[in-house]
Amino acid sequence: MKNREVLDIAIRAGEILLRNGAEIYRVEDTIVRICKSYGVACEAFVLPTGMFITAFGANDEDISIVRRIKERMVNLYKVELINSFSRRIEKEPLSHRDAKLELDEISNSPRHSFLLRLASAAIISFAYTILFKGTYIEGGFAFAIGAMIYLLKETVSKIGFFQFFDTFISGMLAAGLSLVVNRYFPHADIYKIIIGSIMILLPGVAITNAIKDALHGDIASSVFRLSEALYVATAVGAGVGVVLSLSLR
């Protein structure tokens, strides 16, 4: 196989990993491993927003590819599939066509159905309201609000105004609905309902992943992820804060 084709497969696999929430070290490792199993020496440098790969060929024919990544989400199933793909390729290298077909299949692999995701968002809100010492009634309200927030977030992020806009507006919705609940059921604590229902928006995993990147030595992407988490938390907090401070007057 030609160097360019090897690099093509490696960067496709890397792109799928990076788009779906794999750690930086795993992306670099996978790219180098795939190139190595075809007998190509290469160097990979990966940031959360893009990748740079160079393959060293014979007769000074080095090839480099830069790939910019704009959208990121978490889809651990694809990470798992790519991981087993790269391990398989290490044992017996596939042809360029077969590998490409397989990667296409992985990148089109289905997600859980929308209804199931909606239900999960609602149950997460319920569970965390109870976990933060709310009553079952507050949990029930959080359940409904959490579902609505997920619905809103999915629609808004499809339209896509600017980054973090969907989290901001979801925070506003959470605070607004909790205020409505509180007006008719004064015993329900606003704070606990809000906390449960915004749980799906919050960047807890991002903060932890940022530190994990730092412990692997990828300081640049660790700073990137930390500030991304800060922006998300700020967007949620600002959304909630705007509505709550307006209501106090």
Partner: peptide, 24 residues
């Protein structure tokens, strides 16, 4: 990969609420 378990398994511990409360 172990990440699959540890990312979701650590969600009850992860400080999302604390991050939000800070901004609040």
């Amino acid at each position: 990969p172990a990440t699959i378990f540890s990312v979701s398994g650590s969600t009850p511990l992860v400080p999302g609420i604390a991050a939000y409360t800070t901004i609040q």
